[in-house]
Every structure is written in structure tokens, then in C-alpha cells.
Amino acid sequence: LTELETIYVTKEHLQETDVVRAVYRVLKNCPSVALKKKAKCLLSKWKA
């Protein structure tokens, strides 16, 4: 997740890969609050 925060991701990348699905899975299933927060921030950033 940290690496995903530092790289530039285009909408095309998100549509062509399962990155969003994987990050969403972390948000829903990971017991770590810190990782959930990171995943939520990434998804919000990409949605904007």
C-alpha cells in the first residue's frame, strides 16, 4: 500500500488491473486499523 501511495496511477491503470479490487479487499478484511486507513485514503484519492 505504501508503494501505491508514492506512484502515479492513471484511471486507465485502475481500469485495466485489479488494483482497486485488491485494495478494497484490504479495506474490508484486514484486521489492522492502520492498513484499513491507508486503503481508504488510496481509494478516496483515486476516486477524486
Rank of each mutant, 00 (worst) to 15 (best):
S44F: 08
Q15R: 12
T10W: 06
T10A: 11
K36D: 02
K28D: 01
I7C: 03
K36L: 09
S44G: 09
K28I: 08
H13E: 14
A39M: 11
E16P: 11
R21S: 10
T6L: 03
S32A: 13
T17R: 09
V23I: 14
E5N: 03
L43C: 02
W46R: 01
V26L: 08
T17P: 12
R21V: 00
L1H: 15
E5T: 00
A48V: 03
Y8A: 15
L14P: 10
C30W: 13
R25M: 04
P31A: 13
Y8S: 05
R25W: 01
L14A: 14
T10E: 09
W46P: 01
T6D: 12
T10K: 08
V23N: 00
K38I: 07
L4K: 15
C41K: 14
A48S: 12
S32Q: 05
V33A: 11
E3K: 08
T17D: 05
E5K: 05
V9Q: 15
E5L: 06
V20I: 07
V19A: 11
I7S: 13
T6R: 10
K28A: 04
Y8P: 02
K37G: 03
C41R: 13
R21F: 00
E16M: 12
A34V: 04
P31S: 15
R21H: 10
E16H: 08
T2F: 04
R25N: 09
K36A: 10
V26W: 15
V26Y: 15
P31E: 05
E12K: 13
K38W: 07
S44C: 02
S44P: 00
K11F: 01
E16F: 12
A22V: 05
D18A: 13
V33R: 13
L1V: 05
T17V: 04
Q15V: 03
L43K: 00
L4D: 14
V33H: 04
H13F: 05
V23D: 03
K37F: 05
E12Q: 06
K47S: 00
T10S: 09
E16T: 09
A39H: 03
Y24P: 02
K38L: 10
T10D: 06
K11I: 10
L42D: 00
E3C: 13
Y8L: 07
V20G: 09
L27D: 00
T17W: 09
S32V: 15
V19M: 12
D18R: 14
L14V: 14
A48H: 06
I7H: 07
Y24T: 12
N29L: 11
L4G: 13
L4N: 15
R21K: 07
C41Q: 15
K36H: 02
E5G: 01
K28P: 05
L27S: 00
L43W: 13
L1Y: 04
A34M: 08
V19C: 07
K36Q: 10
Y24G: 06
K36F: 11
A22D: 07
I7M: 14
V9D: 15
C41G: 12
A34S: 10
T6N: 04
K36T: 05
Q15I: 04
S32N: 11
C30D: 05
R25D: 05
D18F: 14
L1C: 08
L42H: 00
Y24A: 11
L4M: 11
Y24F: 14
V26K: 08
A48R: 12
I7D: 14
D18N: 14
L42Q: 01
K11T: 03
Q15N: 05
T6A: 05
V23R: 05
K38F: 08
E5M: 02
L14Q: 14
K37A: 05
T17L: 00
K28S: 05
L27V: 04
E5H: 06
E5C: 00
N29F: 09
T2A: 05
E3P: 04
D18L: 10
A22P: 08
T10G: 08
W46L: 11
A39D: 01
K11W: 09
K38R: 10
A34Q: 04
P31I: 15
T2M: 04
V20K: 08
L42E: 00
W46T: 02
K45E: 01
Q15H: 09
K36M: 12
V33E: 07
Y24L: 14
L42G: 00
K45S: 03
W46Y: 04
V33N: 06
A34I: 01
T17C: 09
L35R: 03
H13C: 07
E16S: 11
Y8K: 14
K45N: 05
E12I: 02
K45P: 02
P31D: 04
S32C: 15
K38M: 11
V19Q: 04
K47C: 05
T6G: 10
C30P: 07
A22N: 09
L42P: 00
L43P: 01
E12L: 01
E16V: 06
K38D: 00
C41I: 08
H13M: 09
K37E: 07
V19T: 06
K38N: 14
E3W: 15
E16Y: 11
K37H: 03
T6Q: 12
K11S: 11
K47Q: 04
L42Y: 02
A48E: 15
V20R: 06
T2E: 15
T2S: 14
R25A: 06
K28W: 12
K37C: 00
C30R: 04
Q15W: 12
K47W: 12
R25C: 00
A48T: 13
S44E: 07
V33T: 08
L42V: 05
L35S: 01
A39Y: 04
R21A: 04
K38A: 12
E12W: 02
S44Q: 04
H13D: 12
K36R: 10
W46G: 00
V23W: 11
S44R: 11
L4Y: 06
V9F: 12
K37S: 06
V20A: 11
R21Q: 06
A48I: 06
Q15M: 04
R21M: 06
K47I: 04
A34N: 15
A34P: 05
L1R: 08
V23S: 03
L27P: 04
L43Y: 07
C30V: 12
R21D: 01
V26C: 13
A34G: 10
V33D: 10
L4A: 14
D18V: 09
C41V: 12
S32Y: 06
P31G: 15
S32D: 05
V19N: 02
L42R: 02
R21C: 04
V23L: 12
N29C: 11
V23A: 04
T17G: 09
I7L: 10
V20N: 02
V19L: 09
A34K: 13
E5S: 01
A34E: 06
L4P: 15
V26M: 14
A34C: 13
